[in-house]
Amino acid sequence: MIVSGGEALVDLVPIERGPLSPLAPRLGGGPYNVAVGLGRLEVPTAMLTRLSTDAFGDALLARLVESGVDTGLVQRGEEPTTLAVVTVDEAGHARYSFHVEGTADRLVTDPGPLEVDALAVGTLSLLLEPGASVYTELARRGAERGLFVSLDPNIRPALVGDADEVRGRLDAIAAVAGLVKLSDEDAAWWGREPEELLAAGAGAVVVTRGAEGLRAFTTAGVVEVPADTSRPLVDTIGAGDSVHGALLAHLHDHDLLDRAAVADLDADGWRDALGFAARVAGWTCSRAGAEPPTRAELAQG
């Protein structure tokens, strides 16, 4: 089983073009989208987070269940749900502003040892205390026990307090991670080249480059695949999360949720993995909000 640990929130998304468009609620958050994506791809997965007992929290929980995600690690609290206000430019690219003060997801508590195959962490949950320290410790402790750790920084600079502290936290997780997935914007903010992360201990590093596709950095070299443009672009909300979830699904399907196995994967293996991730992300970008495809939808072409 793969556990996705981190925030679950509500995106308030414009329903039409223009700065004063009405906003519609969409359920999301990077780790939440990864969990939903894995569940829809029929990969055994669970979500570790803290959800509000408000109506948004109930809806977030129900969608996890509908997507086939195990909710046994989900905690509940009376604090409000985190909100993200989304704007989408003419090219379909999303930008976010966040309302996170005193919200439920940042107050997650340590569940103890995780008897699972993999732990995926990242996004807001690694920026906001006290939850950030909980997820960092879970990743460190899990890696010591042989758990496959996957990291997607998905940095939101507006929410970064102490940048050096955040970079140090990311460095510590990346050094024990089997997979680091990041965007080129994340890499620029972090100040770490993929080769540096490999040298520090990461099994492999996958960089998303928007319309330019995906690139994997491994000890054997660099592998690239183009973006999947076979479906019309609606928006890019959840695209990176879909890549992260799809990579984990592919590794699970091929019995590769192991740091050494990922480090040893050859170029053809990486082309298959990246191609699958690009295809899943293309599906997600073809509809509004973070709506990753099911396994059945992918089979339909």
Rank of each mutant, 00 (worst) to 15 (best):
L38P: 04
L38Q: 01
R40K: 15
L41P: 00
E42Y: 01
E42D: 14
E42H: 09
V43N: 11
V43L: 10
T45R: 01
T45D: 02
A46Y: 06
L48N: 11
R50L: 02
R50M: 10
L51G: 11
S52D: 11
T53I: 10
T53W: 06
D54T: 03
A55G: 01
A55P: 03
F56E: 11
F56T: 07
G57R: 13
D58S: 14
A59V: 03
A59D: 11
L61F: 15
A62Y: 10
R63G: 04
R63T: 12
L64C: 13
V69G: 02
V69W: 03
T71G: 03
T71A: 00
L73V: 07
Q75D: 07
Q75P: 08
Q75V: 06
R76T: 05
R76K: 08
P80A: 04
L83M: 12
L83I: 14
V85G: 05
V86P: 04
V88H: 10
D89M: 05
E90K: 03
A91Q: 11
G92E: 04
G92M: 00
H93A: 09
R95A: 15
Y96C: 01
F98A: 06
H99G: 12
H99L: 12
V100R: 11
V100F: 05
E101D: 14
G102Y: 00
T103H: 02
A104C: 02
D105K: 10
R106M: 01
R106T: 07
R106V: 05
L107K: 13
V108W: 08
V108I: 11
V108M: 04
T109P: 06
T109D: 13
D110T: 06
G112S: 13
E115K: 13
V116A: 14
A118H: 09
A118F: 09
L119C: 01
A120E: 14
V121F: 10
T123F: 10
T123H: 13
L124E: 06
L124M: 08
L124T: 09
L124D: 07
S125I: 05
L126Q: 14
L126I: 14
L126W: 05
L127Q: 15
P130R: 14
P130Y: 11
G131N: 14
S133Q: 15
S133I: 10
S133N: 13
V134P: 09
T136W: 05
E137M: 09
E137D: 15
E137C: 08
L138Q: 02
R140T: 13
R140K: 14
G142K: 09
A143L: 02
A143S: 14
R145A: 14
R145N: 06
R145T: 06
G146E: 00
F148Y: 01
F148D: 00
V149H: 07
S150I: 12
L151Q: 05
L151E: 04
P153R: 03
P153D: 01
N154K: 07
N154R: 07
N154V: 01
N154P: 00
I155A: 10
L159H: 05
V160P: 01
D162P: 07
A163F: 00
E165A: 15
E165H: 12
E165S: 14
E165M: 10
E165Y: 08
V166K: 09
G168D: 12
R169H: 06
R169I: 04
R169M: 13
L170D: 09
L170I: 15
D171W: 01
A172I: 05
A172Y: 07
A172P: 08
I173K: 05
A177S: 15
G178Y: 03
K181D: 06
K181F: 02
K181E: 08
L182M: 15
L182T: 11
L182F: 01
L182Y: 00
